[in-house]
Simulated scan of single mutants.
Amino acid sequence: MQSLSLGRIALIVALAALLILTGGWAMAVWNAPSDVVMDKHGWIALGLGTFFSLLVGCGLMALMFFSSRSGHDDAADPFRKRHEPKDRVDCL
């Protein structure tokens, strides 16, 4: 295992601080007192928005994995080393 450089340690500390600050802000906003009541149309919109966001995200991830496995991404990365079988015989 390599030892962490000073730059990587600073990056990890900065990201951890951002995570803690974001979590604290989210808890403060979530627990903020408000007199706003969401009716059934708001809950329906929230549910449909969540469902379709997850559907689009899962669909795009599936397309990414299928594209990667089928070899369609090989042309987009010309610098990647190709792993060819060692027992392959080139025919003329």
Rank of each mutant, 00 (worst) to 15 (best):
M1C: 03
M1W: 05
M1E: 03
Q2S: 02
S3N: 04
S3T: 04
S5E: 04
S5R: 02
G7R: 08
R8Y: 02
R8S: 02
A10H: 02
A10W: 02
L11C: 07
I12C: 00
I12R: 00
V13R: 05
V13W: 03
A14L: 05
A14I: 05
L15Q: 08
A16T: 10
L19H: 10
I20M: 08
L21A: 15
L21G: 15
L21K: 10
T22E: 07
T22S: 14
T22G: 13
G23M: 09
G23D: 12
G24V: 11
W25Y: 13
M27H: 13
A28K: 13
V29C: 09
P33M: 01
D35C: 05
V36L: 15
V36T: 15
V36M: 11
M38V: 14
D39P: 01
D39F: 03
D39C: 02
D39H: 07
D39R: 03
G42A: 04
G42L: 01
W43R: 06
W43T: 06
W43K: 06
A45M: 04
L46R: 08
G47D: 03
G47Q: 04
L48C: 05
G49K: 00
T50V: 05
S53Q: 08
L54I: 09
L55D: 03
L55Q: 04
G57C: 12
C58D: 12
C58W: 13
G59L: 01
L60D: 09
M61K: 12
A62R: 12
A62T: 12
A62W: 14
M64K: 15
F65L: 12
F65A: 07
F65K: 12
F65D: 11
S68K: 14
G71D: 00
G71N: 00
G71R: 00
H72K: 13
H72D: 10
D73A: 06
D73W: 09
D74S: 13
A75C: 04
A76I: 09
A76C: 06
D77Q: 11
P78F: 00
P78D: 00
P78L: 00
K81M: 06
E84R: 10
E84L: 11
D87N: 15
D87Q: 14
D87K: 10
R88Q: 14
R88D: 08
V89N: 09
V89K: 10
V89G: 02
D90V: 09
D90P: 03
C91E: 11
C91F: 11
L92H: 09
